[in-house]
């Protein structure tokens, strides 16, 4: 994995004199800084039209992540986490990592632009698309739990994600939802 060719320190150049933010990424040459709250409001205002936006961003993130992985055949969770986190971080979308509880695989999205419920659909669409594109395995995602500075998303089948969404909407805690899932798998 050619991680050293993509140092995060030189990925963004802020030129305050000209009001420009240059990204040292192959897909984007220039960025515009927008407060995260504004972005969250715009995403919430999109409603059902948020999916194309999330998929478009996911394609860009997955493309950069694949470039960082540099053709690694079967990347480890650490390598994939690094590549996706670097691609997200270059866009100001925070970082991420994977956790596994039994057979349940989760993705921790640290410091996303928003964590409220109006952002969940955008988040699940984005994460599912990125992981699917990077690994080549079609995946669905659902928000398992929400914290002050991040989200925990479950990665699995569509039916399992529907259960997670239902239990999370009822206010169940993430571990209880996972216990339900894992108990069903073991039964």
């Amino acid at each position: 994995m050619a991680t050293r060719l993509h140092p995060l320190a030189s990925a963004v150049t802020v030129d305050l004199a000209h009001g420009r933010i240059e990204l040292k990424t192959p897909s984007l040459a220039r960025a515009v800084a927008v407060p995260a709250t504004w972005l969250a409001r715009a995403i919430a205002a999109l409603g059902d039209g948020v999916d194309p936006l999330a998929k478009s961003l996911a394609e860009s993130v997955a493309k950069d992540a694949a470039m960082i992985l540099d053709g690694t055949a079967d990347p480890t969770p650490e390598e994939v986490a690094y590549s996706i986190a670097l691609a997200l971080g270059q866009r100001g979308f925070g970082t991420c990592g994977f956790e596994r509880f039994g057979d349940a695989l989760t993705l921790l999205w640290n410091f996303p632009p928003a964590t409220d419920a109006s952002f969940h659909r955008f988040a699940t669409t984005l994460v599912a698309k990125v992981v699917s594109d990077v690994t080549g395995v079609p995946t669905h995602a659902a928000v398992l739990s929400t914290h002050a500075d991040g989200l925990t998303l479950f990665l699995g089948a569509d039916a399992a994600c529907a259960l997670v969404r239902e239990r999370a909407a009822r206010g169940d805690a993430g571990p209880q939802i996972l216990a339900t899932l894992l108990g069903g798998a073991s039964a």
């Binding site: 969770p77 057979d103 990665l155 399992a160 339900t180 069903g184």
Partner: peptide, 18 residues
Amino acid sequence: PASLRSLLQRSLALRPRG
């Protein structure tokens, strides 16, 4: 498991109870 792909496939195999 060594790869994320295998981890993901195991997670995809999870089915909700009932």
